[in-house]
Nucleic acid binder design. Structure first.
Lengths: 235, 235
DNA sequence: CGCGCTCTTGATCAGGTTCAACATTAGTGG
DNA sequence: CCACTAATGTTGAACCTGATCAAGAGCGCG
């Protein structure tokens, strides 16, 4: 994989920094406090394929996505890749290295032209001490992310591949339109990685689900959900 | 397993509450602050097999283990059980329901006579606001637990059952004695559940690992690790 | 238009589950 | 402390899900 240098620490303008106002962990602050936060953030921009950070690097910043998206993945002990999650504007990452003063365990790769804001550990810590409600927001976010991850583990240990795929589609249903059509937010191979299987099996299982009249595959990675309850409980 | 008297919802005495002083999230406080914390906690005791809480219940307390151990498990969408983790004295749980004001997703079951302390949401929130360093400790704990859980996911998607078992044993090696002997902290069926397989397969894979000269099975669920590096990289 | 990709479909194979029988351990009460 | 019972762990054999390898189809992009 080729690795390109990030665009050098582009001097940040106000609109780039405004991202913080969108972030759930900050959006309860008033304007004055928000300005104070903006003082401390630094913004950067990355092209598709560039890495914001890699596993093994130390870090002293919390990274917040402003525009675009970041693909967070891990390499296993034996070198295979696994998609952990995709960050959209308002999402943050880097908390492990930040709070535990350790190294990143992830890779964070821009999936498209992406701009981010970063807050240094010391700045964040003073903010947390000054405005403890921010901590509560982060605690909220982390505990819910932990719940998600544990649910994912449970699915791996207890459900078949077909069921995991079906549950994944059911999870997507919240973003479906009137016709119950969802667009897969991931390429098939990333989807396969996320639910712990191969692209071949994803193809086959989608076909199986279609034969069971639970979904209909449409062009452009779109899928129509015909029976959302049926997806939750395959035989 | 010496003590046996059930001390259900017993009014708390000072030594029971002293558990908070052992907890990483509080142990940086001074004596006076510690006493303030102790004012707010309530202690309870459970017998083996009793549930501290169940999935679906709302909750407004953070639960800290004082003595004994709690088995945290989930039921999957289709009703199968999965061991999430085991809490030892000083560990806490209940953060999801607490910070997100939602329901528990777990079951917490005493594995032996166990005493716990609980702090109410409002009390914890005032403590967090008053002593923001507590938040930092909790953030630390949650982010590292999240990391653990994501690592677990990655192992499921990328490693064989045998490798997952070997990695589990390697993780245990930190608690090994001079002779590299570890005692399995889980019953085989719980271990199987944790690493996502069946008790039968655990038996067989342990045998395989023994034949590969990587471990030696001893009586009383003890295992001698003969080649800890070899466990990390099976062929 | 043609070269990469990603995606699909097919055939084979292996790892792991399941079911069943047996062995061992732990827990209980005499 | 021993005997009995229930629960947990082990071993064997058949089966099945999903991975792998290989080849072809579709798609996006220069």
């Amino acid at each position: 994989m080729e690795y390109k240098e990030p665009r050098q620490n582009q001097s940040c303008n106000h609109s780039d920094k405004a991202c913080v106002s969108l972030v759930p962990i900050f959006n309860h602050l008033d304007t004055e406090q928000m300005n104070e936060v903006m003082e401390t953030v630094e913004s950067k921009a990355y092209d598709k394929g560039e890495l914001v950070y890699q596993a093994g690097e130390p870090s002293n910043v919390l990274t917040i996505v402003n525009r675009g998206s970041l693909r967070i993945y891990r390499l296993s002990e034996t070198g295979k890749e696994q998609l952990v999650r995709v960050l959209k504007p308002g999402d943050f990452t880097g908390e492990l290295a930040l709070f535990n003063e350790t190294e990143h365990e992830h890779f964070a790769e821009a999936m498209q032209p992406t701009s981010i804001c970063q807050i240094k550990r010391e700045d964040l810590q003073s903010l947390l001490v000054k405005y403890p409600t921010i901590s509560l927001k982060i605690l909220q976010e982390l505990s819910s992310r932990l719940d998600q991850s544990e649910q994912q583990v449970t699915r791996f240990t207890t459900e078949s591949t077909e069921q995991r795929l079906a549950l994944y589609l059911a999870d997507l249903s919240v973003q479906a339109d009137d016709h119950h059509i969802v667009k897969l937010p991931l390429a098939k191979k990333d989807l396969a990685s996320y639910i712990g299987t191969t692209p071949e099996t994803v193809s086959r299982k989608l076909l199986d689900l279609e034969e069971k009249q639970l979904i209909k595959r449409l062009s452009g990675s779109r899928i129509q959900l015909l029976d959302e309850d049926g997806l939750l409980f395959l035989d």
